[in-house]
Nucleic acid binder design. Structure first.
Lengths: 236, 236
DNA sequence: GCGCTATATATTGTATACAATTTTTTGACC
DNA sequence: GGTCAAAAAATTGTATACAATATATAGCGC
């Protein structure tokens, strides 16, 4: 077949920050399945920059464990082991239990309203069948809470854990499960509104257990795919 | 004055991994105080590599928040704000509370023996007045426990937090405080040995509170210093 | 001497060039 | 057709070159 020799795309060079964000989004929205090879020249062409910058972006993504760098072999989307999944969710439980407890005590009316709106957007994405957006929003709910608690170090840790979690959960692709997840978010927020710390902690633990239980780990349905298509769709 | 034009040091090129480890050690052992500028050419000469590799190492260090990259300005050893210190220790409390609780339940005889030996080395370093080694060992005690609990994700999170903590604590430079810290390690280990989970958790929280209380934050006694000297001393 | 501007120097940002390694292709041989 | 070996192509690893920016120095007016 003719190697799709597209013309060099005329776009102004992207910042390293942008490149990291675009690839991260593609990963979180699961447009780049685990195992996908991320070639440096291919990425360079997509973003209109040299390999130097791509490489810097890849180093950062590798440190977040979103991709795996094999020496002299290249960069691949991380394919998490079941063990990783368990440890990841365990770590999330440790941190999120504390976060939701504190949030229940400190949540302001405005913060609760923000979360309520967020859940509404989750439901809209689910209703619209937008799997990518749905995935992102369901994860961002947890990060939002973390950022509202007031410890940016913990919030940052959770953000990283959430991103890695997404690599592990094909589960959200199931529309029914997503809907269920969103319902649990609502219940969680109700407990917060009633200042029921014990209930909120319990709901959070159940929620994380449910998400973990629904994991579909070994399924690597990785078809060969088009890097450019996956990445250019990414809205930063 | 004559610009100390030392001959190009003949050493074989260091791997990026090594460069990161060497600089990290220098930071953890506080031979490179906060605010120190890490020039790319200077580092390149120290390690016998080009700026390309140095840059990659700096990106990784920056992601761990050990150094701060200012655009077009360069890399500087991170100077943590009091706010950062509080959040850092709060995060450590959240994680280490759980870790020590679990460790108390699962610790084997061999693991306890390893920690006992470690504490002995702490005391030796303190007695010998080796501030650099002392700093490292006091921090590694916590990381050792984390690694023994069996969740590598949590262990890795704690390792990062510990490194950043070290940037914040000039406190260990005080020999008396170091001795006190080591005593608390011993007490902690005793509680573990007696399977006293509640006591172990309490001791860990007190220990972290003590360390945090003794912080000497604003003191930036940063004298201009010799990058090469600080880095070549670093034993990986 | 102090402060400002202009020039010179040094440093960082990015692309390109080349070496080293891996992957793919080719072709001989059974 | 299948298997192995060698050559070719592609990809990664590193250094160097050059552009862009920031810092330091010099000169001038007051």
């Amino acid at each position: 077949m003719p190697t799709r020799k597209s013309v060099a795309p005329r776009r102004q060079p992207a910042s390293t920050e942008t490149i990291v964000a675009r690839i991260t989004n593609a990963l979180v929205e699961q447009r780049l399945p685990p195992g996908t090879k991320l070639g440096e020249v291919a990425l360079g062409e997509v973003f209109g920059v040299s390999r130097t910058k791509i490489r810097q972006a890849l180093i950062r993504l590798a440190q977040d464990k979103l991709i795996t760098l094999l020496p002299a072999r290249g960069a691949f989307v991380t394919k998490p082991e079941p063990r990783d999944a368990r440890e990841l969710f365990d770590a999330r439980r440790v941190i999120e239990r504390v976060l939701i407890e504190r949030f229940t005590a400190s949540a302001t009316r405005a913060q609760i309203a923000t979360l309520r709106d967020h859940i509404a957007r989750e439901r809209a994405a689910i209703a619209a069948g937008d799997a990518a957006l749905r995935n992102r929003l369901l994860g961002e709910f947890h990060v939002l809470i973390a950022e509202m608690v007031g410890n940016s170090v913990l919030a940052e840790l959770l953000r990283e854990l959430m991103q890695r979690s997404t690599l592990v959960t094909l589960h959200y692709q199931n529309e029914r499960a997503a809907s269920c997840s969103s319902s649990e978010h609502t219940a969680l927020l109700d407990a917060v509104r009633q200042r029921d710390a014990i209930g909120a902690v319990r709901l959070m633990e159940q929620h994380l257990t449910h998400v973990e239980r629904d994991l579909a780990l070994p399924g690597s349905n990785a078809a060969a795919l088009d890097l450019r298509a996956a990445l250019t769709l990414a809205k930063v």
